[in-house]
C-alpha cells in the first residue's frame, strides 16, 4: 500500500458507541417480560421498554440502546430512529427532576409566562437548561391536557395544576 489514506477528517465524526450492553435486576426483567408478553410482536414493546431503560439509567445511553436492540432483535439504528422521534425520550442526560411547563394556548393566556419566569429565576436557568447540580431541568412543552386547570407543569410524571408562584415554591421546596 503505497498511497496515502484519503483524509477523512476534519469532516468525519466516527463514534464508537462501545460494546457494553446494559443489564437489569430480575424485577426489572420481569417487568420487561410482562410488556413483551402483551404484544404479538416484540417490536411493539419498544416504547414501554424505552421508558423502563430511561427510568433505570436516567436516559437512553449507549448500553441501554444496545440492550433494547438485543432484547427486541432490532438494529441499533431502529432504536435510534424511534428514540429521536418522540419528545419524551431522551438520548441526552436530563435532571433528576424534569420540570415540563405547558406553554400552549390555554396555559399561555392563563399565566404560563409568569410561572416560567418564576421557576427559571428560582433555579437560575433558562428553559432547556439543567442546573449545575443536575437536579433540575426546565423545558417548555406542548399541551399536556390540563387546559381547564391552567397554568400547570409536570415534574417527571406528576401533574401540578392551577399553579401560582407560591404554589410553585411549595412544590419545589417539598422535593426530596
Amino acid at each position: 500500500m503505497s498511497q496515502q489514506l484519503t483524509q477523512i477528517g476534519p469532516l468525519s465524526q466516527p463514534v464508537n458507541i462501545g460494546d457494553e450492553v446494559a443489564s437489569f435486576s430480575s424485577e426489572v426483567e420481569a417487568e420487561i417480560n410482562w410488556h413483551l408478553a402483551k404484544y404479538p410482536m416484540k417490536r411493539s414493546a419498544i416504547l414501554p421498554l424505552m421508558f423502563i431503560v430511561q427510568r433505570e439509567r436516567g436516559y437512553l445511553d449507549a448500553p441501554g440502546v444496545a440492550y433494547l436492540a438485543k432484547r427486541l432483535s432490532l438494529r441499533i439504528t431502529d432504536i435510534w430512529e424511534v428514540a429521536t422521534f418522540y419528545s419524551m425520550l431522551h438520548t441526552q442526560p436530563v435532571g433528576k427532576y424534569h420540570i415540563q411547563i405547558c406553554k400552549t394556548l390555554s396555559c399561555k393566556i392563563m399565566g404560563e409566562p409568569g410561572i416560567t419566569d418564576h421557576v427559571c429565576n428560582r433555579l437560575g436557568i433558562k428553559p432547556g437548561e439543567t442546573t449545575a447540580d443536575g437536579r433540575f431541568t426546565v423545558s417548555l412543552v406542548e399541551c399536556l391536557g390540563s387546559c381547564g386547570t391552567a397554568p400547570m407543569f409536570q415534574i417527571g410524571f406528576d401533574y401540578h395544576e392551577n399553579l401560582t408562584p407560591e404554589k410553585v415554591d411549595q412544590i419545589l421546596d417539598s422535593l426530596p
Binding site: S44, L47, F85, Y86, L89
Partner: peptide, 27 residues
C-alpha cells in the same frame, strides 16, 4: 385489553400514525 403508552407525539393521535407507533415504529 392492554394499555399501551405513547411517548410524546401529537401526530400519534392520528389513527394510522397511532398504529405505526403501536407497532413500535416512528409515529
Amino acid at each position: 385489553i392492554y394499555t399501551h403508552t405513547g411517548a410524546g407525539a401529537y401526530i400519534c393521535g392520528e389513527e394510522t400514525a397511532l398504529l405505526s407507533s403501536l407497532e413500535g415504529l416512528r409515529g
